[in-house]
Design a protein around this nucleic acid. Sequence first.
DNA 1: AGGGCAAACTTAACGTTGTTAAGATTCTAG
DNA 2: CTAGAATCTTAACAACGTTAAGTTTGCCCT
Lengths: 204, 204
Amino acid sequence: MKERPIKQQYHHGNLREALILEAIRLLETEGLTGLSLRKVARGVGVSQAAPYSHFKDKHALLSAVCTAGYDRFAERMRIEAGASTGPAYIAGLGRGYIHFALDNPALFQLMFDGDMPGITPEFTGDRAFSEGYMMLDRGLTEFPIPYFKDDELSRALAWGVVHGIAHLLLGGRIKPENHGYQSIDDFVWAYMDKFVGGVEVPHQ
Amino acid sequence: MKERPIKQQYHHGNLREALILEAIRLLETEGLTGLSLRKVARGVGVSQAAPYSHFKDKHALLSAVCTAGYDRFAERMRIEAGASTGPAYIAGLGRGYIHFALDNPALFQLMFDGDMPGITPEFTGDRAFSEGYMMLDRGLTEFPIPYFKDDELSRALAWGVVHGIAHLLLGGRIKPENHGYQSIDDFVWAYMDKFVGGVEVPHQ
DNA sequence: AGGGCAAACTTAACGTTGTTAAGATTCTAG
DNA sequence: CTAGAATCTTAACAACGTTAAGTTTGCCCT
């Protein structure tokens, strides 16, 4: 019987998960370019070559990080959409999408800029498949955007609307104060409301 | 009098421009992650430290590359918009935006993903300022999208629509064949037509 | 014309990175 | 209890960004 079943000395126990969590942590503190395999290894207290027992190379670790990221991503959309229906459901999904990007900038950048396996309809990786795309797709089928007749293009359009603003806000290309909004959150709400309803939202 | 005023042996002559052009060339052949300062130097036949006579560091060279990129970017939009007016003008600008991204993927990635000085209304760098944003902004003022009342949000929305689809197509997240289109160009035309007109475009 | 200075460029070195090889330690199945 | 597999370590390699120190070149000033 061992006195310490959690923290071992030579065998780490669950190095694989620890590396993924440390990589996510470093991503948000050091950014994508500041992330190195050796730093991740150092962060969990193992040698520089230890990760190679669990991942073929750096890209494989980052892929695993993406998989975890897609899960959190879909969860955020699910939470913000809540139990609402109709246009409010679509708007909620969009806000979740955008908020996730702004709250996890480096992770979002890795998920969509690094050439990582992504969220396309035909992608069938089990855990890596993002529910995010499916939720948006199903939502649009149930509740089409008024102005746009429901067809394949309207799905791409809705996705573009949401993804584009997320990416532009992330890069600082669009600043809410330049569009009459004091807080990012006000802007995001108004933005999605305008898209799903096409209405003019009053902003002070 | 020298026999060769163009190609010198020790002093390169116009190393600065040569480095920028070589960096752009390498960007599209090796990608953003495959681009190194030393490769750029090797490509123009100078030593590894030569670039530091013209650029403070790698980031400074990439900034100069972005400046050149923004010029080409705006030019592409101008060309595709041509002399058209109304919704067709907006659609043309959007197609130019998307086509530039697809034709210069790594350059576009650098311009919008690397933390490079970008195109925001208040950015006043002389040559680095992209006319692209200004053209889109002026176009929308002259020719508002029908469904959306012309306000500050509609500018952000239009930019998001265009940028989002460009980025998603670039990353392979959206594939035209999944939306009923055989060629990317058909898809891009239909996409922009749908946005500016809100009409259903027939696709075989 | 020539001297000197600054700009442009080279070689050499440092620390960091991703990756591999070879060996040591621990776990586990038989 | 023991063999082999899984896990982890140390050591090394080439490539990278960057800096320091020295060399070559262009050019202005007298």
